[in-house]
Design a protein around this nucleic acid. Structure first.
Lengths: 344, 344
DNA sequence: GTGAAAGCGCTAACAG
DNA sequence: CTGTTAGCGCTTTCAC
């Protein structure tokens, strides 16, 4: 790999001049410039990003850190893709880290990213009061929260209206005539799930339906397995729910599995609303009603906020709230007659 | 962020000594060591990875590059996770790049990764004869191919037995009594899809079934949309297939969507075998028969090959072929009594 | 316009 | 055992 020095030698100039040509900074004689450019091409010169980064002040390292719970969760891979598509246009590279919702891993990767001199970090914080993250903000490294909020600090943030999402899902079910509506939510304290549950409760209250604790099941949102078990429990209740609201994509899968295993028909025997409108939702039979999160767009927006901060570090932090959207499909079809069959 | 210099000053030693303590290289006086360690803790010292990388010879930069077609494709996100879990234990950071099967993006990211001084690159090569990749191998940067092979160069590679996967899928369908079996495969030249199709053809031949070109549909494997359209075409054929083999997860979704839209019942009206056993496959109704690829394990293995090469650069390149596995579920259930409406 | 030189933070000879 | 010194490849004063 060619270096500045070699290019300089070949072009018969100093390395400073070559650097100037590359960065297009101060004026360089047209002829000299051409000679340098020719040498760069001949040697197939590519600047060494590591050296640039070591030398550069913050905000110029062209490296962005991402810490997500799990790239295998498609909701997050959609966010990551949205981010990456924006960084691509800015000539940034992206370091990817999986935290597994484990605060120790989060802390570990935060240290790694600091030590890698990233220009910023995008993440859904595991804790609403993450001290490590707060201290990084203090250090002046731009942080953008996505999917979840940080409570004590003002930070650039992209979330969806989770309360509204939960409210819309359950209101829709109520409209279809349901009264016994169960919810599968997270046993861990994430702002997103808390809010979805609040929306669930508000929809019930507003419609004069009493909240039945037996219909509220909490489990690990990373595991469709627990969701399946919890659904098994729900279905074997004395008076089981006629509808289930699953608050993320993995839990939705567990619900579907349990329902199918019990030989129940959707929506005839039970209605389902999922969260996250992933590609399989509309491909399955019957197609699934979901609350769609604009994950890809959330990623894009988060990356944009990051670049805005790089350009203007003193800008006021911004909180962007995106709209969740109810996508009605047949898994919550109203049972007007005995049977509503799915034909196009 | 504290530096070596500051630690040295605080501990009253030279930076070399501090460096020695960190790297545990040559012997340092016990007392001195303690003093240094205390200073490191007090200052919350973390070595600067960028500086280490600039200084380090190749194989020590603690950075690994990944270029995958699309992280939104869950097959690849599973691979990525397998890789990441192995690198985590080696204190490596991972740079993630999406190529979209676009050779220009691949080339671009290859340059970026070179310029980032990565210790190696793991990727499914877009072309079986990728010159850029070959030249990188020549440079001595370890490359590990995963999911797809490189033809002209000997490289560490992890693939599955794709031909066998295709063969098993189709043999299974034949066993269930099917004779008109369609395949949805890639219109682009990837070794993996080519081989799956070869397996399809061999299974037919060995069972004395003539290959019917009208039942072989080629489309973009990144798009469930085209798969849906191609399935529409298949289903409107004069004598439509009684079974469809979809050669990746996205195409499978397209098939399902089309079949459902046509109001056909699986497996009564048509049988389906998919590729990639993703979480939704067993959650849908009826559960989907698939060829399971051990994607996560492929990622792990690829990362292990990389680390083996870092340890021993002169080792012979190794090609690991993992087993695809037929997972039989109800989407290909034999229609015992009913009419196997398979054009006799 | 152009170049010499300092230095980002670190490791690795080479002395002592 | 420990310190001095020379860079890794680059950008950026500061002179000329």
């Amino acid at each position: 790999m060619a270096t500045l020095k070699e290019v300089a030698k070949k072009a018969g100039v100093s390395i400073t001049t070559v650097s100037r040509v590359i960065n297009g900074s101060s004026k360089v004689n047209g002829e000299t410039r051409e000679r340098v450019q020719k040498a760069m091409i001949q040697l197939d010169y590519q600047p060494n990003r590591v050296a640039q980064r070591l030398r550069a002040s913050s905000g110029q390292s062209k490296l962005l850190g991402l810490i997500i719970p799990d790239i295998q969760n498609q909701f997050y891979s959609n966010i990551v893709r949205g981010i990456e598509d924006v960084t691509y246009g800015h000539d940034y590279a992206v370091i990817l880290c999986n935290s597994d919702e484990n605060p120790n891993k989060e802390r570990f990767y935060l240290e790694v990213l600091k030590s890698e001199s990233v220009d910023g970090i995008i993440l859904p914080p595991i804790h609403q009061f993450g001290e490590e993250i707060e201290s990084i903000i203090e250090l002046g490294i731009p942080i953008v929260c996505v999917d979840r909020k940080l409570m004590r600090k003002k930070v650039d943030t992209v979330v969806i209206g989770n309360e509204k999402g939960g409210y819309d899902a359950v209101s829709h079910l109520i409209e279809q005539g349901h009264k016994k509506i169960a919810i599968l939510t997270s046993s861990l304290q994430f702002s997103s799930f808390d809010e979805r549950q609040k929306g669930y409760e508000r929809a019930l209250k507003e419609n004069g339906i009493e909240i039945d604790k037996r219909l509220i099941k909490e489990g690990d949102p990373r595991s469709s397995e627990t969701a399946r078990e919890l659904t098994d429990e729900l279905l074997s209740l004395d008076s089981p729910p006629s509808a289930i609201f699953a608050t993320n994509n993995l839990m939705t899968l567990g619900v579907l599995e349990s329902v199918n295993k019990h030989g129940m028909q959707i929506p005839d025997d039970i209605s389902i609303v999922g969260f996250d409108d992933l590609p399989w939702a509309k491909a399955i039979s019957p197609p699934l009603t979901t609350i769609k999160q604009p994950a890809y767009e959330m990623g894009q927006k988060a990356a944009e906020l990051f670049f805005q901060r790089v350009e203007n570090p003193s800008r006021e932090p911004e909180v962007v709230i995106m709209e969740p959207k109810l996508i009605v499909r047949e898994s919550t079809a109203k049972l007007v007659n005995a049977q509503v069959k799915d034909t196009e």
